[in-house]
């Protein structure tokens, strides 16, 4: 009973909080891969998002402006990825790795430049909100008490992505591009434009996820603070079948494993071992996912 209690009041809400950046990364991955572009740079786009958000919050004192900074930075890195991959025709996987390395070097370099160490100063954090009335619901009220705006924003973004993919003509076109870009081109669709816009939106979402980590979940930037969440997002997207709803559920699975670590950690299991959990789960999930029939057929193929 005591565990069940802490499950509902602590572990589940924390799991949900931790799923936010992963789910945003997953949707970014879904957009990219449905456009036929492998985007391993999401991790780096999140990292610059996290960094820029702290810088924005630090400069203006407003975490909201900080988050905007983070989204812009992520979008710029998304633009960098799509330019190098689509316009300059670089190998997409290599480009993703370069983006991640660049983000790591650049954020460390600038953190040291601004604050003299690899950890930024503490900045104003996005204030939490409590929904009146709903917070009084027994047990589940915890989900409406003292949570970040992201807590409520995420379902909206997931729903919007779902509607976009399955209910609009732009979603239909994106689907066509991911499966057969030649066919899309011959149907008069400007494939390059769709990829540019899509990858930039993916970058903005990744930047938003990073910003959440640095100014909503925490209140500082730490070197490499994204810690693989971008890759977990990519894995969630695969596990979720390139579908925003599926990705959302899958990312919650990862996050739940992460949140367990706060409660099982310490005396019973060494921290390093609990830290391994989400990565191990990702691997197991990748192995368990059945034949990848729902994958866009032209992933990594420009034409």
């Amino acid at each position: 009973m005591q565990f069940l209690d802490s499950l509902i009041t602590h572990i589940l809400p924390l799991g949900y909080q931790l799923s936010i950046p992963i789910a945003l990364a997953a949707i970014a991955a879904t957009i990219s891969e449905r456009l036929g572009v492998i985007n391993l740079g999401i991790e780096g786009q999140m990292l610059v998002g996290a960094f820029a958000a702290v810088v924005g919050s630090h400069l203006t004192g407003s975490p909201v402006i900080g988050i905007l900074f983070g989204m812009i930075a992520g979008g710029v890195f998304g633009l960098l990825h799509v330019t190098v991959c689509v316009k300059l025709r670089s190998n997409q996987a290599v480009c993703g790795v370069a983006i991640n390395l660049l983000a790591l070097g650049l954020t460390d370099f600038l953190t040291t430049l601004i604050w003299g160490t690899k950890i930024s100063a503490l900045v104003t954090r996005l204030p939490n909100v409590t929904v009146p009335l709903l917070e009084r619901i027994p047990i589940a009220g915890v989900f409406f008490r003292n949570q970040t705006v992201f807590f409520y924003l995420l379902p909206l973004i997931v729903a919007a992505a779902y509607i976009f993919f399955y209910k609009t003509r732009w979603g239909l076109r994106v689907m066509a591009i991911g499966h057969n870009p030649q066919a899309a081109l011959s149907a008069g669709i400007n494939v390059v434009k769709y990829r540019y816009v899509g990858l930039m939106i993916a970058g903005v979402l990744a930047g938003l996820g990073g910003a959440y980590l640095s100014v909503a979940f925490n209140n500082a930037f730490v070197s490499d603070m994204v810690a693989g969440r971008g890759f977990m997002g990519i894995a969630s997207n695969i596990f979720g079948g390139w579908n925003p709803l599926g990705s959302f559920l899958a990312s919650f699975l990862f996050a739940f494993a992460q949140s367990l670590r706060y409660y099982v950690a310490g005396a019973v299991v060494p921290t390093q071992i609990t830290q391994m959990l989400p990565y191990a789960i990702t691997l197991i999930v990748l192995i368990a996912v059945k034949k990848r029939s729902r994958a866009p057929e032209a992933m990594g193929v420009l034409e």
Partner: peptide, 22 residues
């Protein structure tokens, strides 16, 4: 120039879908 997983209807209208938000 056809997209395999999509239906014939979707393939034909692709790129010239009826105007509208949805």
């Amino acid at each position: 120039m056809l997209v395999n997983p999509m239906t014939a209807l979707d393939n034909i209208m692709l790129g010239k879908e009826p105007i509208g938000l949805f």
